[in-house]
C-alpha cells in the first residue's frame, strides 16, 4: 500500500514538474524558417520511433502546444492563412490525443483482465500482484493528464479566441473546439473512473486470502522457545498487525540488551522472526543467523 501511494505520488509529482518545466522550456522556430520543414520531419521521426502509447501521447501534446505557439507567432506577423492552417493542425493533434488516451486506457484494461483471468501458481501470483501495484497508478496518471490537458487546451484556445486579428473562420473553429473539448473531457474522465472502480474491485480479491497464509505459517512453525524469550508470546500476541509485532520485538530486544543475557537473542522464537520476515520488515537488532534461518524458511 505504501509502495502504491509512493508510486502514485511520485508519478503525479513528476507529471506536474514535467508539465511546469515544459511550459517554461517550450521553444518553437517560425513556420517561415527554412528549417521548419526539417523540424517537422524530425518530429515525425521521433513519433515513429516512440513505441509506448503514453509516450506518444506526451509527444502529441507537445506538438499540439508548439503548433499553437507557431500560430500565434504567425498572427503576430499578420499571416492569417498560415495561422489558420496551424490552428487546424492543433485541433487535429487534440483529436489524435483523445484517441490515444482511449487507446492507453484500453491497454491498461486489457492488462488488468489478463492479470486476473489466468490461473497461476503462488510465485506468478506474487509477481502479478507486484505488477498490479505498478500498473495501478497509470489510470490515476491518465486522469490527471486528461484534466491537465483539458485545462491547458482550454486556456490556450480561450487566449487565442480573444485575439482580434484571428480570422473569422478560425474563430468559429476554435469556439467549436472549446465546446467539444469540454464534453469529450467529461466522457473520458467518466470512462477512466469506471476503469479505476473495476481495478479496485479486482484488487480487493487477493487481500482476502492474506490472513489464511499467515495462519498457515504460524501453524507450520511451532518450535520450542527457551527462556528468557519464552515469555515473548505473552508480549507478542499472535496477530496480523505488523506494527504491534515489531514494537513488541523491539521491546524484547531491549530487554535482552544486557551482555549477560545476550545469548538469549540467538534463540528468539522463530515464530516471531518468521512473522517479522514475512512482512519484509526485519528487526535491525535481531541476530543475523536467526534472520538467515528465518529468511530461508520464509522463502519456502
Amino acid at each position: 500500500m505504501i509502495k502504491k501511494i509512493t508510486a502514485v505520488a511520485l508519478a503525479a509529482t513528476l507529471l506536474t514538474i514535467g508539465q511546469a518545466a515544459y511550459a517554461e522550456e517550450t521553444t518553437v522556430i517560425s513556420a517561415d524558417s527554412e528549417l521548419y520543414e526539417t523540424v517537422r520531419e524530425m518530429e515525425e521521426a521521433t513519433y515513429d520511433l516512440t513505441e509506448d502509447v503514453e509516450n506518444k501521447l506526451e509527444l502529441h501534446e507537445e506538438y499540439a502546444e508548439k503548433r499553437l505557439l507557431e500560430a500565434e507567432e504567425q498572427l503576430d506577423q499578420g499571416d492569417e492563412a498560415s495561422a489558420e492552417a496551424l490552428i487546424n493542425e492543433y485541433s487535429e493533434y487534440l483529436d489524435q490525443s483523445a484517441a490515444l488516451l482511449e487507446e492507453a486506457a484500453e491497454e491498461i484494461d486489457q492488462e488488468s483482465d489478463h492479470a486476473t483471468d489466468e490461473p497461476t501458481d503462488e510465485s506468478t501470483e506474487a509477481e502479478e500482484a507486484e505488477e498490479t501495484e505498478e500498473e495501478r497508478p497509470d489510470l490515476e496518471v491518465l486522469q490527471a493528464r486528461v484534466r491537465a490537458q483539458a485545462e491547458k487546451s482550454s486556456a490556450n484556445l480561450t487566449r487565442l479566441l480573444a485575439r482580434e486579428d484571428l480570422p473569422e473562420s478560425a474563430k468559429a473553429g476554435i469556439a467549436k473546439a472549446l465546446e467539444n473539448k469540454g464534453r469529450a473531457t467529461e466522457k473520458r474522465l467518466a470512462k477512466l473512473e469506471r476503469k479505476a472502480a473495476k481495478w479496485a474491485a479486482k484488487e480487493s480479491v487477493p487481500s482476502i486470502e492474506e490472513p489464511e497464509e499467515t495462519n498457515e505459517e504460524v501453524i507450520d512453525a511451532p518450535e520450542p522457545v527457551e527462556d528468557p524469550v519464552e515469555k515473548a508470546p505473552e508480549v507478542l500476541p499472535e496477530t496480523d498487525d505488523v506494527a504491534t509485532e515489531e514494537q513488541a520485538m523491539a521491546r524484547v530486544t531491549t530487554e535482552v540488551a544486557d551482555p549477560d543475557e545476550a545469548t538469549a537473542e540467538t534463540v528468539k522464537p522463530e515464530k516471531e522472526i518468521k512473522s517479522a520476515d514475512k512482512k519484509q520488515k526485519p528487526n535491525a537488532n535481531a541476530n543475523a543467523k536467526a534472520k538467515e534461518k528465518a529468511k530461508g524458511k520464509g522463502k519456502k
Partner: peptide, 24 residues
C-alpha cells in the same frame, strides 16, 4: 533526413534553430 538550405556560413544559427525546434 537531408535538408537543403540556402548557402550560409553561419552554421551556429542553423544548429541553434534545430535545437530550439527539437524542444527539451
Amino acid at each position: 533526413i537531408i535538408s537543403v538550405l540556402t548557402p550560409t556560413n553561419d552554421l551556429t544559427n542553423v544548429k541553434q534553430a534545430l535545437k530550439d525546434g527539437s524542444g527539451n
